[in-house]
Simulated scan of single mutants.
Amino acid sequence: MVDALGARGLSAAAQATTGAGDATRLARQAALEGAELIVACGGDGTVNEVLQGLVGTTACLGVWPGGTANVLARELGLPRRLEAIADVLAAGHTRRVSIGRAGDRYFILMAGIGLDAAVVRGVSPTLKRFLGEGAYWLAALRQLAAWPPPRFLVEVEGRVEPATLAVLANAAAYGGGLRFTPQARMDDDLLDICLLDSTDRLRLIRWVLAAFRGAHLALPGVTCLRARRARAHGAGAPWVQVDGELAGRLPMDFECLPAAVSVLAPR
């Protein structure tokens, strides 16, 4: 990639990560030293780490998809080939997008509470390397076997709604081809919130199948809201994930931060 960018007139340097938190530290350091563009090479988890270091700086985020699901890359319409990605980065077309905050961690795609966070927690890193997105579906089957999931409460603008799964989205795309929030937009100032409330396995399966088409929104037990802020809490302290990475447990506050980051994307 460094050579490909150099051939297009851009000066670049590569920095490798060796552990959790490295991408955040390296991105923050480069941004504070005046780098105009920070390119995250990896999956959505790597992009999320880089995002933590860029918020509050003037550096722009670029994405070179190389992970399991690459949900953000699909949302932005990015190509996969190195030369085509280099063309996008060199073209310099930026989009100013909102991000979300869950507790003290930022997200660019979504935060998930309850069942989907439990799936993220249960994914085997070894199976993820070999099966890709299939590892998440295996983890989901294990969660179904461990039924029922804990119920929690989500507070949104004076309303209190029960749920066993919640998605608070900044973008329409979700992993595995699911579209829990098909109308979510990265350039508005609201989170799209989808709440599923049931301990019935068959109803959950029906919801998930419908969510591939975005047709779950009108089904019984599904609540859809849009809000700038939300708070979730519940007995048993269910897990929370952001962009496919664990972010802690409830209680937690969630917020949309409008026009917080610039990203490079195709025109």
Rank of each mutant, 00 (worst) to 15 (best):
V119D: 01
V120M: 06
S124A: 01
T126K: 15
K128M: 04
K128E: 09
L131W: 14
L131C: 12
W137Y: 15
W137G: 12
W137R: 14
L138K: 08
A139T: 01
A140K: 09
A140V: 02
A140H: 08
A140C: 09
A140S: 11
L141W: 14
R142V: 14
L144D: 03
L144K: 08
A146W: 10
A146I: 10
W147G: 14
W147K: 13
P149H: 09
R151E: 11
E155C: 10
V156W: 03
G158D: 00
G158S: 06
R159Y: 12
R159C: 13
V160D: 12
E161D: 14
E161S: 15
L165P: 11
A166F: 04
N170S: 09
A172V: 06
A173C: 12
G175I: 00
G175Q: 00
G177T: 01
L178S: 07
T181K: 05
T181H: 09
R185Y: 04
R185V: 07
D188Q: 06
I193C: 04
I193E: 00
I193Y: 03
C194W: 00
C194D: 01
C194H: 00
L195G: 05
L196Y: 10
D197I: 00
T199E: 13
D200M: 09
D200Q: 11
D200E: 12
I205W: 14
I205H: 10
I205N: 10
R206I: 10
V208M: 10
V208Y: 07
L209R: 14
L209I: 14
A210S: 07
F212N: 12
A215Q: 09
L219T: 05
L219S: 02
P220M: 06
P220H: 00
P220G: 01
P220E: 01
V222N: 08
T223K: 10
R226T: 11
R226M: 07
A232S: 00
A235D: 15
A237S: 13
A237T: 14
P238D: 09
W239Y: 13
W239P: 12
V240P: 05
V240G: 01
Q241F: 09
V242Y: 07
V242R: 10
D243E: 03
D243Q: 07
D243S: 04
